[in-house]
Design a protein around this nucleic acid. Structure first.
Ligand SMILES: [Mn+2]
Ligand SMILES: [Mn+2]
Ligand SMILES: [Zn+2]
Ligand SMILES: [Zn+2]
Lengths: 145, 145
DNA sequence: ATCTGGATTTAGAATTAGTCTAAATTCGTT
DNA sequence: AACGAATTTAGACTAATTCTAAATCCAGAT
């Protein structure tokens, strides 16, 4: 799954008139280093480790900015908002034991061929699948119920 | 898509030791009459119309109770929590113009035959699809962008 | 090198959805 | 009618997010 490089990012940001300040860069860096869909609070905590005194407002502002610029997606799983630096359309798996949110390749469940209109006459532009169950780690432990 | 009758409901509730008080019945009635996935606040407003002085706490308590008893499902769309009286597994369509959440039959996108394990070794127990685009009403109006 | 205006950041107040609490009420059983 | 358990209520509390107004930063103009 494609991830943006620093270059991509600089270029994209610039092309959209986005000023990449140190705080903003720290936020993007963390999101790309973190493998799994951090929440706003996790971003706040981590960015503050490297860059103390970064305010919540800046974290939220930046996440919203990047999202609006299309450099970041927001995913909601079970009422929790998380941020996803992977831009290609893909699906998610949520572990019911540990709560981890993992990426799933879109090929696993491709669009039903040529169906742009649902029976209810809705025009589908995108779709995403959420799989639920036990992740590799949790499923491994002793065939738990 | 199957919906519970009053009888089903009484029986189910009783069999699970759930006392169906007037407030609780009003909440369930409303959820079943409303066609589209009301939020807690919408339930609160409507139940109060018929049954003034019903507190938020009772609405939330009841929704959580019914959910725990399996008589109701909670669906999160775009960070908003909504309640769904349709118990069979099914998918959803979210209109990007008006925000309406509509049911979609599961047949539209059935499980990939025999796949219980994803490539990442996750064991899939359930899955759900969210389609996004324009609903019949919004899509009809003048081929908007 | 200094000035200046716009963009950015900051701390904290405000808002919102939801949970918790403790007292009052209801209801089935004696 | 009296009792105790379950339920309901109003409002306090909490957590996530947005808003606000003042401070800071910074690029371009002088
Ligand atoms: Mn993802
Ligand atoms: Mn539904
Ligand atoms: Zn797990
Ligand atoms: Zn619509």
């Amino acid at each position: 799954m494609r991830r943006l490089t620093q270059q991509d990012l600089d270029q994209l940001a610039r092309s959209r008139g986005l000023n990449l300040t140190p705080q903003r860069r720290a936020i993007v860096d963390f999101l790309h280093s973190a493998s799994n869909h951090p929440s706003a609070e996790e971003v706040f905590a981590e960015v503050n480790r490297r860059f103390p005194m970064t305010s919540r407002a800046t974290v939220y502002n930046t996440l919203n900015l990047l999202k609006a610029a299309g450099l970041l997606h927001e995913v909601f799983e079970d009422g929790v908002s998380r941020f996803d630096p992977v831009l290609d359309p893909h699906h998610h798996f949520v572990c019911r034991a540990c709560g981890k949110v993992e990426d799933v390749d879109r090929e696993i469940m491709p669009a039903p061929a040529g169906r742009k209109l649902l029976p209810g006459k809705q025009r589908v532009e995108t779709y995403e699948v959420t799989f639920r169950g036990l992740c590799a780690a949790c499923g491994g432990r002793a065939e738990q119920q």
